[in-house]
Simulated assay, not measured.
Amino acid sequence: MTQELNSLGFAKPPAETRVIVAMSGGVDSSVVAALLHEQGYDVIGVTLQLYDHGAALAKKGACCAGRDIHDARRVAEDLGFPHYVLDYENIFKDAVIDEFADSYLAGATPVPCIRCNERVKFRDLLQTAKDLEADCMATGHYIQRIAGTTGPELHAGADPQRDQSYFLFSTTPDQLDYLRFPLGHLASKAETRALAAKYGLMVADKPDSQDICFVPDGNYAAVIEKLRPNAADPGEIVDMQGNVLGQHRGVIHYTIGQRRGLGIGGLDTPLYVVRLDPDRRQVVVGPKEALATRRVPLRELNWLGDGKLTDRAEWEVTAKVRSTRPPRPAILRPVSETEAEVELLTPEEGVSPGQACVLYQPDSSRVLGGGWIWRGH
Results as ranks from 00 to 15, higher is better:
9 G>C: 03
13 P>F: 00
13 P>M: 00
15 A>D: 14
17 T>P: 05
26 G>M: 13
27 V>R: 02
28 D>A: 02
36 L>N: 08
37 H>N: 14
42 D>E: 13
46 V>D: 03
46 V>G: 00
47 T>D: 06
50 L>K: 13
50 L>W: 07
54 G>L: 10
54 G>I: 12
55 A>L: 10
56 A>S: 08
56 A>E: 14
65 A>F: 09
67 R>C: 11
71 D>Q: 05
80 G>E: 08
89 E>M: 12
91 I>Q: 14
91 I>E: 14
92 F>W: 08
93 K>M: 08
95 A>N: 04
98 D>H: 12
98 D>R: 14
101 A>V: 14
103 S>L: 10
108 A>L: 13
109 T>Y: 00
114 I>E: 05
115 R>Q: 12
117 N>A: 00
117 N>M: 06
122 F>C: 13
123 R>K: 15
126 L>P: 04
129 A>N: 04
129 A>W: 00
132 L>S: 07
132 L>F: 15
133 E>K: 14
137 M>C: 06
138 A>F: 03
139 T>I: 12
140 G>Y: 03
141 H>I: 01
141 H>S: 11
143 I>R: 02
143 I>Y: 02
152 P>T: 00
155 H>T: 01
155 H>F: 05
158 A>V: 01
161 Q>L: 09
162 R>H: 06
165 S>D: 02
169 F>Q: 05
181 F>V: 03
181 F>A: 02
182 P>R: 02
185 H>K: 09
185 H>P: 01
187 A>R: 04
188 S>T: 04
189 K>R: 14
192 T>G: 01
212 I>V: 15
212 I>W: 02
214 F>E: 05
223 V>I: 11
225 E>F: 05
229 P>M: 06
237 I>K: 10
239 D>W: 05
242 G>H: 04
245 L>T: 07
245 L>D: 03
254 Y>V: 09
254 Y>G: 10
255 T>D: 00
255 T>R: 15
255 T>E: 03
256 I>P: 09
263 G>N: 09
269 T>K: 15
277 D>N: 15
279 D>Q: 13
280 R>F: 04
282 Q>C: 04
287 P>M: 08
287 P>L: 11
296 V>W: 06
301 L>M: 13
304 L>Q: 11
305 G>P: 07
309 L>Y: 07
309 L>W: 09
311 D>C: 03
314 E>I: 12
321 V>W: 08
323 S>C: 07
324 T>C: 08
324 T>L: 12
325 R>C: 03
326 P>G: 06
327 P>N: 07
332 L>G: 01
333 R>S: 15
346 T>W: 00
351 V>I: 13
351 V>K: 13
352 S>D: 12
354 G>C: 09
359 L>E: 04
360 Y>P: 04
364 S>K: 00
368 L>E: 09
368 L>C: 01
369 G>K: 01
370 G>Q: 07
372 W>P: 00
372 W>K: 14
373 I>T: 07
373 I>W: 05
377 H>Y: 03
